[in-house]
Design a protein around this nucleic acid. Structure first.
Lengths: 208, 208
DNA sequence: AATGCATTGTTGCATTTGCAACATTTTAGA
DNA sequence: TCTAAAATGTTGCAAATGCAACAATGCATT
C-alpha cells in the first residue's frame, strides 16, 4: 500500500503541510468524524476508524475500515446517505488535505512532484479496488459472485487458499447478497466439491 | 472532462512524448486493439472505439465507448475475460503511454508537473464514475437501482429530467439487470406516477 | 467458569427476478 | 423508399434469492 509521504523527508513534509494548509486533528474513541468537503483527503497518522452503516433495525454493518497510513474521504468512498457515518474506533491522529489545494499549488519543488506521484499511486490503488468490486458485482448469481471473489483473492495471494479479511456477515454485505442465501450457496459449493472451508480459510479445489 | 494535455503547449507536449517514449498508432475501422500491458494508457487523438462484450449467443453489448480526447486502458476498465474486446468503430489515431514510465521519469519541468496533475484529474474522474456505478449496484432491487440511477443523472443535469446516454438494452447491462425485467419495473414506475418517459427523456415526478 | 452478545448455520416460504418467446416499433443502410 | 436488423414492449413461467425465525456455536468480558 502506497504511503502518501513516501520518499519525502520529514523536513520537506513539514514545508508541504504548511504550503498546502493541511491541518492535524485528534479524535477520541467513539467520536464521529464529519467531513464537510467532498475534496477533503484524510490521512491516518495513528489510530483506527471505520465507516459503518446502520439500518432501520439499528444493525451495524462495516462498510470500510482504515488504519495507520491509510487515506480516506468522499473522493474515495462517498458517505452515501445519512445512515452511514465515520466512527473513530481507537484514538486517532489525522491530517486533512484539500485536493483542489494540492492541484492549485504552483510549487515546483521535487518533493512536491514526489507528493503528486504518491497521490497518483494511491488513487490508482483505490481505482483498482473499485474495479475489483465491480467485477464481482457485475456477476448475476450468488455463485458467480462468490467464485469471482475467490478468484481475485486467490490471485492476490498467488495460491489456492483464500483468507477472508472479514467475517461472513460483512462478506455478504460486500458482495451485496443476503447472508443466509450466501451460506446456502456456500454449502452447495462444499457439497459439490468446489471448496473447503476451515474457519476463515477457504481452499479452492478447482483449477484457477 | 479533463484533457490529458491541458495547459501544455504543443512544443512541450512533443518533448513529453519523446521523454516518456509514447508512440502513436493508427487503426482502421473494425480493427481490434489488443493491449499487452496493464499499465498502458491510451489517449484517443481522433476516432471512436468501444469495448464490447459478446455472449455465448453472439449478442454484442456495449461495455464502454471512447471518443476524441478520452483515455482508456486496463487500469481504467479492465478487459475482464476473453468475451470482451476493444473494437475500432471509426478510423482512429491513438497515443499510448506507460503509467510506470510516467511515474519513473525524473523530469522536473513545469509541463511535466502539469501532466501529472492532468492525469491525477483524469484518474479521479474515473474513480468518481466507478463510485457512481457502485452506488447503483449496491442497491438490491431493480426499482432501487433505477431510482438511484435517475437520482445521480438528475443531479448531474441539475433538473428533474434524465437524458439517457444510451439505449434501454445498454442501460439494463449497465445496471446489471434483465432488460425485460427492467421494462416491467419501468412500466410500474410509470403507472404509479413516479416517472414519465418520452423517448430517451425521463421526467422525475417525485421530490429529488 | 458463567454470562451475554455476536456470528453462523439451517430451513420454509414468499417474492423478485431472469428467461424465453413473441409482437410491435424504430432505426440504419441499400 | 424499401428492407432487414435492432430495439422495445409484453407476458407466463421457472428459478433464484431474500426474508424471517430460530438453533447452535463462538467469543469476549467479568
Amino acid at each position: 500500500m502506497q504511503n502518501i509521504f513516501a520518499n519525502i523527508s520529514e523536513n520537506n513534509k513539514c514545508k508541504l503541510l504548511k504550503t498546502l494548509e493541511a491541518n492535524t486533528y485528534y479524535y477520541k474513541k467513539n467520536e464521529e468524524i464529519s467531513i464537510k468537503n467532498d475534496n477533503t483527503i484524510g490521512v491516518i497518522l495513528s489510530g483506527l476508524i471505520e465507516i459503518i452503516k446502520i439500518d432501520y433495525d439499528g444493525n451495524r454493518t462495516l462498510v470500510e475500515e482504515y488504519v495507520e497510513d491509510e487515506v480516506f474521504g468522499n473522493m474515495f468512498t462517498p458517505i452515501q446517505s445519512n445512515d452511514e457515518s465515520i466512527m473513530v474506533r481507537d484514538d486517532s491522529k489525522i491530517i486533512f488535505f484539500d485536493f483542489e489545494e494540492i492541484l492549485d499549488s504552483s510549487l515546483d519543488k521535487s518533493y512536491y512532484i514526489q507528493f503528486l506521484k504518491n497521490i497518483l499511486l494511491i488513487i490508482n490503488e483505490k481505482l483498482q479496488e473499485k474495479n475489483e468490486r465491480l467485477e464481482i458485482l457485475t456477476k448475476k448469481s450468488i455463485r458467480n459472485k462468490l467464485l469471482e471473489y475467490f478468484r481475485i483473492m486467490a490471485k492476490k495471494h498467488g495460491s489456492k487458499y483464500v483468507y477472508l479479511p472479514f467475517n461472513f456477515t460483512d462478506l455478504a454485505a460486500y458482495l451485496v447478497i443476503d447472508r443466509s442465501a450466501m451460506a446456502r450457496e456456500m454449502k452447495y459449493l462444499k457439497e459439490e466439491g468446489f471448496i473447503e472451508i476451515k474457519g476463515k480459510r477457504i481452499t479452492l479445489l478447482y483449477d484457477l
